Simulated scan of single mutants.
Amino acid sequence: MMFCPECKSMLKSYDGKLRCPKCGYEKELDSTDKSHLQKVNHIQEKDIIIVDGDKEKNVTLPTIEIKCPECGYELAEWWLRQLRSADESEVRFFRCVKCGKTWREYD
C-alpha cells in the first residue's frame, strides 16, 4: 500500500496521480507505483471470492460437519456474509454438499 507522507492516510489513484483523500497531497504516478498498483489489483481480483445466489463454478468453499435440515447429510460448505449493520455479527451460511439446501445461522 502507498501512504501519504503528510498525514499517513492511504493514497488513491486518480487520473494518473496518487491523491490523498484526507489532506489533498498529490504525487504523479511513476513506473514503480504503476507496477505496484497492477500487482495489488491482480491479487485482489484473483483472491476475493463473493458468494451470492447460485453456487459459483470452480469455487472451493470450506466444509464443516453439520446436519442438513433437509436430507440429514452431515457435511456442508459454509461462508460468512455481513447482512446487518457493521456493529452486528456476520451471518453464517451453509450449503449441503449432497442436496444443495442452503440455510443460515445467526449468533
Rank of each mutant, 00 (worst) to 15 (best):
Y73N: 08
K67P: 04
F3T: 09
R104G: 05
T102W: 00
Y14D: 14
V59W: 03
E105A: 10
L37N: 04
I66S: 04
D33P: 04
F3G: 07
Y25V: 00
K17E: 12
S35W: 06
C68M: 01
C23H: 00
E65Q: 12
D33T: 02
F93C: 02
N58G: 08
K34I: 15
K27T: 08
S9C: 06
E90D: 15
K34F: 00
K39A: 14
P21D: 15
I50G: 02
V91A: 06
K27W: 04
C71A: 03
D107H: 13
I64D: 13
D15F: 01
T32S: 15
Q38N: 06
D15E: 13
Y25S: 00
T32E: 15
C20F: 04
E74N: 13
K27Y: 00
W78L: 14
E74T: 14
L75H: 06
K67V: 12
W79L: 12
R95F: 00
K34A: 08
Y106P: 07
I66P: 11
L11C: 13
I50L: 09
I66Y: 06
L18W: 02
E65F: 14
K17Q: 08
L18S: 00
S31K: 14
Y25H: 12
E28A: 10
C23L: 01
E26N: 09
H42P: 01
K8N: 13
P5E: 01
C96I: 00
K22T: 05
D15C: 01
D47G: 06
C23S: 01
Y25R: 01
I66T: 15
K55Q: 13
L37V: 02
I48C: 05
K67E: 13
T32P: 00
T32I: 09
K34H: 02
K17L: 08
L29V: 07
K98T: 03
K55I: 11
E56V: 05
N58F: 09
V40W: 02
T60N: 06
W78F: 15
C4G: 09
E105I: 03
C23K: 01
M1R: 11
K8V: 11
E105S: 03
E77C: 03
D52E: 07
L11P: 11
I49Q: 07
C99K: 06
I50T: 15
K12N: 10
C96P: 03
T63N: 10
L80H: 10
E6Q: 12
K98Y: 04
W79F: 10
E45R: 11
L75T: 09
L11G: 05
K55C: 07
H36M: 15
V97P: 01
K17D: 06
G24Y: 03
D47P: 00
I49H: 07
T102N: 05
E65R: 13
C68A: 01
L11K: 13
I49E: 05
M2A: 10
E74P: 01
E26Y: 02
L75S: 11
E105K: 06
Y14I: 15
K57W: 06
R19L: 12
D107N: 15
V51M: 11
L29N: 04
T63F: 06
W79H: 09
N41S: 14
Y73K: 12
K22N: 12
C7T: 09
K57T: 14
K8A: 08
W79T: 06
P69Y: 03
H42M: 09
G16K: 04
L61N: 03
D30C: 00
